[in-house]
Write a protein that binds this DNA or RNA. Structure first.
Lengths: 229, 229
DNA sequence: TAACCGTGTGACCGTTTTGTGACACCAGGC
DNA sequence: GCCTGGTGTCACAAAACGGTCACACGGTTA
């Protein structure tokens, strides 16, 4: 699955440049031009990294970072601050607020890309390649394999991606729309009820070992993956 | 363990390109932008190969190579020199200094990767010439022979390389593109479906002993070699 | 209790992906 | 030249997958 990066930056020129250079190296870029928009984006997408402008209209970057880090659901997402030259003294405050790195404007696409790579490596070593396990249900992205208590589990590609997303974002409810965005990908047009069907197929394939209880329905909201009842 | 490559090159652009393209095919890349930094890196990492820029600020590439080769701890590490066009006549001197190969800038990632592969194969025959065996299926790179429970197995050269790659990288899914890169070589252009055909031929040739089950299709992802079902 | 809403479920069918045999081409040996 | 074995590509077949629908079910509300 492609690495998602959310950029929150009010200058459209910078957003566009970042979008172009990062998507060229295989990242999926989601844009927001204000803190508020950034938060609403977080409801749809769960990015792997956030690029955050230091000076934002309305909510400042540092406020945003603090709120992010307080939210247990998002606190793990690494943040890179974009600062203008001459704000050096502010770096300390920025670090306190939980930013993982700083890039000073103007920056080259290359520099940004290498910082991103470094931060991602540091923050979660190969997050998308790590084996995830919940309650005896194990998913190995590298070998593309799912086992329930060492027994092989079969499922289709979409179910696999869905399960992978769930297992890497447990204990959180996702609406059907959010699941479509994160598992199917943005700009696809399919019925929301399609999610139900794939949930059903996923449950069926992991039901043999009783793990279907991990995929929970939250009526009126969506679905959740959780080991708690 | 991943193959480590140390690149010593002052131009960040080239370093980044190399880093990206090599890490994409599974190498671990360590960067240094000067000879001095290169030496300090050698104290931390023992790379399997060194990419060395011909023209370095301060200590030149050739000086570096000479010092490397004098050090008994590092003298075995193969060195590939990166030279700019028009330095052809210098190649002789370079060879005297112990470089194992040359790559002329500008070079393509594919070319570099295949040179690296060739040099590593030449330099350390140990790892890639060891007999591998999985489940009674034995491949001997030295005698270029495959046996299934002591019975001889026939296959074409490409199938042999494919099987060798699979057996040295089991339990992991490879896309058709990755297989093309790793088995065919990086600078060839062939249809991805060609992989399917060779998978088919490989399966056919090892099917007599039932070993075709080791070559597994992962729908939507690629192929995997595994002794597990 | 009946209508209603959201979700579960099985089935359908077009599309996509993979398996498979055949063929043309190339290089090397005779 | 003429085989021969190996390779890449193609066309077709087979299988799996994905999205949609219709209907069933169960809880909630009027």
């Amino acid at each position: 699955m492609a690495v998602k990066i959310l950029i929150i930056e009010d200058e459209a020129a910078i957003r566009e440049m970042v979008e172009m250079s990062l998507s060229a190296v295989g990242y999926q870029v989601i844009q927001a031009e204000s803190g508020e928009e950034g938060f609403s984006m977080l409801n749809e997408h769960v990015p792997d990294l956030i690029l955050l402008d230091w000076m934002l209209p309305g909510m400042s970057g540092i406020d945003f970072a603090r709120r992010i880090k307080k939210d247990p659901l998002c606190s793990e997402i690494p943040v890179i601050m974009l600062t203008a030259r001459g704000e050096e003294e502010d770096k300390v405050r920025g670090l306190d607020s939980g930013a993982d790195d700083f890039v000073t404007k103007p920056f080259s696409p290359r520099e940004l890309a290498s910082r991103i790579k470094a931060v991602l490596r540091r923050a979660s070593p190969m997050s998308s390649e790590e084996v995830v396990e919940v309650d005896g249900l194990k998913l190995d992205p590298l070998s593309h394999r799912v086992t329930a208590n060492e027994d092989k589990v079969d499922m289709g590609p979409t179910e696999f991606r869905l399960l992978h997303f769930f297992m890497t974002h447990p204990e959180r409810v996702f609406t059907r729309g959010q699941l479509l965005d994160n598992v199917w990908g943005t700009n696809v047009y399919v019925e929301e009820r399609t999610v139900d069907v794939h949930i059903r197929r996923l449950r069926k394939s992991i039901a043999g070992s009783g793990h279907d209880r991990l995929v929970q329905t939250v009526r009126g909201a969506g679905y959740r993956f959780s080991s708690k009842p």
